[in-house]
Design a protein around this nucleic acid. Structure first.
Lengths: 339, 339
DNA sequence: CTGAAAGCGCTAACAA
DNA sequence: TTGTTAGCGCTTTCAG
């Protein structure tokens, strides 16, 4: 396997100088003669020398790798956040190691261990929907491992986090429904331990109150974010003696499932039932009717999360809480007026 | 930064033995006393020792990292392939480093360099749609860097590849259209340099011939796989004096775009126009009508690609060409008969 | 059965 | 201005 890279030693031997001279020349150390510097650099170029990150890592005790854990890899949402993380990481000369928790607290813990074993310098995490125990995170904190949460977060104040302004966004949705003439607005939420569930629920309630609508517990459903469980939640809403005339799904995946359920019940969207999602998945404009949704600054969220990580390791900045603003994108599924 | 991991040295000092003894004990070396082995292992557990991969890598000249380059990160298709790669990599104790070429040949080259600098042991690549020059791949070959192509491939025979049976699948689609009563079947292809374009085109033509239908060049369009260019291609087809009554889009993203264009022209699917996609994206069942498509064994493709890589480094196996079978999943968009 | 020493590629303190 | 040496964490001869 001719797999070997040129090393400083190779260059030094070829030039009949010492390894340290080569090292210094390449790194523009002041006390090296200009001619030597040039000579070394030329040969390095020719031989395509690139420093061995393993050796550097061992020496400097840094790997220039950061670990990222997301609930799943196949959703556009997380993929887009990861792109954001990667964009800054790349600029800083870092690589990212990606792991998926598959929404399981167990796998999340396992991934943390694996990534630590790989010696990542820090961890950027979006909680699995199962996660309730925060012990392992506090462990990391004590060990001084930089940690950043994004989207689904916990331990705010202690750990830097980036979230969307979930409450505000949910309020916007409720008020939008109201303006369109909907009066019985349901919310299909996710697991209670997730901040996104709690915050969107709070925003939903606040929105209702702002419109002088009552908060009806019957209209608040929960699902585990899967397609099937979202459909079941919608099915329960439809069986209500006094069913809703509009539904807010906690995310677009849920909304897509809900849409199917509504259609199968023979109801028409948006006339019989308004529908709004959250996070503006790529396919929101492909479904019929096109889905009104909240545009979530995913790429920016990833970049900010990475920024918080670098703030920590470069300036040892205190934990910051960043809240990103969202936009309501009105499409067909909630446009009762123009129907 | 209390970021330090326990080292063999730490354990050795604590037990008052030499580093090599600790190393041997942990690795079950035969000539170490059972008691010593136990003592060492216990302490290692207690102190959460895990070998430093950097040190190992430096010593063994292996990083246990493989690089993966895909055209984009945000499509379910690639995400799913990556999951497949990761599943085997994980079993083998390897990590993967992911890079996206963004469909640019330039960025592809750049990614290869970056990953090489990170000292990945091999590269699994899905070509960007721009890639025509294969010089940098041949370079890698000469340097003895293990290389595997998946889905979009080149240099078959020289380099291990995994593809779907594109021609056979495209033939299935054409015949399916024919059976449903469609007679003017169009194909919206992708860039010519891509094997997937060529193979699917060949299968499409073979399918037509098998059904005794003429191959009409007017019915063969090209796009660059983007949403807009796919719509434009469909628009051109619709403006034909004798337009098609069915369209086969080279992938589901294209098919989704085509679907929109058809709808906006006031045509109904599948009655006025049949539509079939390729690769069975997650959202095929969410659009209306649900999209008939080819199920692409993405996860398996990723796993196979990884297998080929390990075959190469473990057994120095010769380049193999694997062709995976596909399945036609008939949904609403092509079901003229039942309409 | 256990220890000492060399070396993987690199930088930095110390010599010359 | 350049060379020598030690050491990052580990395995592996070679010596006891």
């Amino acid at each position: 396997m001719g797999n070997r890279h040129t090393s400083l030693k190779d260059l030094a031997r070829e030039l009949n100088v010492s390894i340290s001279t080569v090292s210094r020349a390449l790194r523009n150390h002041p006390d090296i003669s200009p001619e030597m510097r040039e000579k070394v650099k030329q040969l390095a170029n020719l031989r395509k020398y690139s420093p061995n990150p393993l050796a550097m890592g061992l020496l400097k005790q840094e790997t220039r790798m950061i670990g990222v854990i997301v609930p799943d890899l196949v959703t556009h949402f997380y993929a887009s956040i990861i792109s954001g993380i990667e964009s800054l990481a790349k600029e800083k000369g870092y690589f990212i190691l990606i792991a998926s928790s598959n929404e399981s607290a167990e796998k999340e813990k396992e991934s943390i261990e694996n990534l630590r074993k790989a010696r990542v310098e820090g961890l950027l995490i979006c909680l699995s929907q199962e996660t309730t125990d925060t012990g392992h995170f506090e462990n990391l904190l004590e060990q001084g491992i930089p940690l950043v949460f994004f989207d689904r977060v916990c331990l705010q104040g202690q750990i830097p986090t980036v979230t969307a302004d979930n409450a505000e966004a949910a309020g916007k949705i409720t008020r939008h429904f109201y303006e369109q003439g909907y009066r019985r607005i349901a919310f299909i939420s996710g697991p209670e331990q997730l901040n996104i569930s709690r915050e969107r629920l709070a925003g939903y309630k606040a929105g209702l109150e702002a419109c002088n609508l009552p908060v009806d517990p019957d209209l608040i459903e929960r699902c585990n974010l899967s397609h099937d469980s979202a459909r079941q939640a919608m099915s329960r809403l439809l069986k209500l003696p006094n069913p809703p005339d509009a539904v807010f799904g906690i995310n677009d995946t849920v909304a897509f499932a809900v849409m199917k359920e509504i259609k199968e019940h023979g109801l028409r969207i948006p006339r019989d039932m308004g529908l709004v999602g959250f996070t503006d998945e790529f396919h929101a404009t492909v479904v019929e009717p096109q889905l009104t949704s909240i545009t979530h600054p995913t790429f920016e969220m990833g970049r900010k999360a990475a920024e918080l990580f670098f703030d920590k390791i470069e300036k040892n900045a205190p934990p910051e809480t960043i809240i990103l603003q969202t936009k309501l994108v009105v499409r067909e599924s909630s446009a009762k007026h123009s129907d």
